[in-house]
């Protein structure tokens, strides 16, 4: 893996640079408040001691990386998983609705794509709306779905999952329509010379040809699905989940909590995308894909 080693050094050095910058900014941003505190306490610490204090505030403007790391570690590994402050627990709450919504969204997207590819009327009438709806800030609907569903007694996992479904079916539909239409004319002609039935052409040609497109769009969809689940946790004052952690952190100005919730969300996102990517690669390999 030559390209991997090519990237490794630049990526790690840039990430290291980010961490250093982060510390510098943490000191700069937290300094005014610290100076305030010191002058009120009539203290005049030395430079090193002062910097140390800026990096150890309980509610810093910008928490230092190690503060976030410690908070993240404590809330992930040291708390019982059942505790409502455990990040594992909160991540799981968000993850479960993400996965449910993603599964439904993918299924829905595939069904709609199959309809669009096979029914000319749907293609001409529905497809333009699907494309247009990409330009609409659909996340704005999230609070309404949550509250309206709560009004008729549907709460918990389902409303969040619906938002995730909504967000993830668009990319899958568009990707699958592209994929199901991707076979070359020559391959279609070939099936025609065999007098293959439409269902044979579908299963033996269109479906295998669309698989790479499916996985590419599923990567986008799973990320969107997670964002949907997080945003879905905002309006209700949900009790658990990464979105709820963010909201609670914002409410009590617990900046370190916000950052570690963000880290948790990012890790979940990265893992989800990675899992879909690996699944895609396994399927591709099984279907005789050429190794990159």
């Amino acid at each position: 893996m030559d390209s991997f080693r090519d990237k490794l050094v630049p990526v790690t050095s840039i990430l290291a640079g980010v961490v250093v910058l982060w510390y510098v900014f943490a000191v700069i941003l937290n300094a005014p408040f610290q100076r305030d505190l010191d002058s009120r306490a009539n203290e005049t610490p030395g430079a090193v001691e002062f910097i140390g204090k800026t990096l150890a505030q309980p509610k810093p403007t910008l928490p230092a990386p190690h503060q976030v790391a410690v908070n993240f570690f404590e809330n992930t590994f040291l708390r019982p998983i059942t505790s409502s402050r455990s990040l594992v627990y909160n991540a799981w709450v968000t993850l479960s609705s993400t996965l449910l919504g993603f599964a439904f969204g993918t299924a829905l997207g595939i069904i709609i794509a199959v309809g669009i590819v096979h029914v000319a009327t749907l293609d001409r009438s529905l497809m333009p709306w699907i494309i247009a709806s990409q330009t609409i800030p659909i996340l704005a609907v999230a609070p309404m779905i949550i509250v309206v569903l709560a009004a008729i007694g549907v709460t918990g996992l389902i409303p969040k999952a619906m938002i995730s479904t909504y967000l993830s079916f668009f990319p899958v539909t568009v990707g699958m329509v592209k994929g199901l239409r991707s076979p070359e004319i020559m391959h279609l002609d070939l099936m025609h010379t065999y007098n293959a039935s439409p269902s044979q052409t579908f299963w033996k040609l269109r479906v295998p040809a669309s698989v790479p497109f499916l996985f590419t769009s599923m990567k986008v969809a799973v990320a969107a699905s997670l964002v949907g689940a997080i945003v879905g946790e905002l309006p209700t004052g949900a009790v658990a989940g990464i979105g709820a952690k963010l909201l609670a952190g914002a409410y009590y100005s617990q900046s370190i909590d916000i950052w570690s919730a963000l880290v948790a969300g990012s890790i979940v996102a990265a893992l989800l995308v990675m899992v879909v990517g690996v699944a895609g690669r396994i399927v591709d390999r099984a279907m005789g894909g050429r190794p990159a």
Binding site: D6, P10, V11, L15, L139, A223, G249, I258, W259, A261
Partner: peptide, 21 residues
């Protein structure tokens, strides 16, 4: 070489979460 993979990664993250910060 370094920014491209990082940028691709970050594009998939729920960046919206920085809003409270």
């Amino acid at each position: 070489r370094g920014l491209l993979p990082i940028g691709n990664m970050v594009s998939a993250l729920p960046i919206i979460g920085v809003a409270p910060i």
